[in-house]
Amino acid sequence: MLLEARQVATAHSPPVNFTLTAGTVLSIFGASGSGKSQLLRALADVSPHTGEVLLEGVAQTAMRPEQWRRRVGYVPAESGWWADTVVAHFTNKPSQSWLDALSLPADLLAAPVERLSSGERQRLAVLRALTVNPRVLLLDEPTANLDDHNARAMAQLVLSYVREHNAAAVWVSHSLEERLRLGENSLEIHASAIIPPPGNQPHEP
């Protein structure tokens, strides 16, 4: 078992159990506000949560947080860019074949971040996470800003990474067609499982 979640819950997401075997992709869907992003944040250990997450049998709490996040890479819906140029955000340069697979020109790496389109940001954010060589990749709607051609290319790239590296991915997707493309593993999150405290509606950031 590559990744195992036991009763993982946050203040804004219901308890979730699942297991993930190497070489597979689990797609997650559910209404807006059901806590999908919060679940991914808990799996990457960037939000306080209850329950247990294990990577190859090792508990999240038994690993240093930065070590865990390198192995369980999370790409949020909104990617963060802190330096001026794109390349400054990469510890390892992405291979030419990865850039080609997502139709990204190589000179884009030297470009200033502010010149990137939202689709380019999204594709570069996934590449940035892949160059860290994660065992599990957590993707929050990674094709939301992509056209159909690039969305298919993204699914292809993630599937081939997962198979070649014996890794796994969790992919939040609203599209049934996309989920079918990713394989038969899927999980629906129900907002009804969370009881919002009075005057405090659950929300996705």
């Binding site: 890479g73 860019w81 802190w82 955000h89």
Partner: peptide, 22 residues
């Protein structure tokens, strides 16, 4: 104001010290 930027660095495996150096 820089929550997204700081978390992006944590998510790539930086420590809290590295992510807040600047």
């Amino acid at each position: 104001a820089s929550r997204v930027k700081i978390e992006a660095r944590l998510l790539l495996g930086q420590t809290a010290d590295e992510a807040t150096a600047e």
